[in-house]
């Protein structure tokens, strides 16, 4: 038997030991008549516990966020690359009218080792068939004696 602080000692009332600690009101839970007939196993709520899940130690290398970011970056870089190529192509489109004639001559001469005079100015020069007729004396004057002998031998 114990005395409690809440009751005057003069009253003479005393309580059984641990009475208040063990006190509970029976059937104070959900009223079954109002629960539509549903019942709960005995002391279900008293023993009900939820074990919180432990944080996962797995590190996902490819989570959705990084995949999405990577996809966006790839799309952007591909678009930029395509634009760059198309821009480059339009710049490089050949327009012969803009080429300087002098440069063209230089190129042909340097790269193809051709004498441009032979090919390009040929049109302006008289054809071999139209060369002026040399007189026989001029030819003989031009050729020295040894050359004439060689010709005769042939």
């Amino acid at each position: 038997m114990i005395e409690t602080k809440n009751i005057s000692k003069l009253s003479g009332y005393r309580l059984p030991e641990d009475y208040l600690d063990n006190f509970n009101v029976e059937n104070i839970g959900h009223d079954n008549s109002q629960s539509g007939g549903f019942k709960v196993p005995e002391s279900y709520f008293e023993s009900f516990t939820v074990t919180p899940p432990k944080p996962s130690k797995i590190v996902y290398l490819y989570n959705y966020k990084s995949i999405a970011v990577a996809a966006v970056l790839i799309v952007i870089s591909c678009t930029m690359l395509i634009n760059l190529i198309s821009l480059h192509k339009t710049n490089e489109s050949l327009d012969f009218s803009k080429i300087d004639k002098e440069q063209l001559y230089d190129y042909i001469e340097d790269e193809l080792y051709l004498d441009h005079d032979l090919y390009i100015n040929n049109a302006d020069k008289p054809s071999p068939s139209s060369t002026p007729n040399f007189s026989e004396d001029d030819v003989l004057d031009y050729l020295d004696d040894s050359s004439i002998e060689q010709l005769i031998d042939y």
């Binding site: 539509g36 007939g37 549903f38 709960v40």
Partner: peptide, 14 residues
């Protein structure tokens, strides 16, 4: 169901 009061009225209500 063992956890249902097999009462006809309550069953009807459900």
């Amino acid at each position: 169901d063992v956890y249902f009061e097999a009462d006809e009225i309550k069953l009807k209500l459900q």
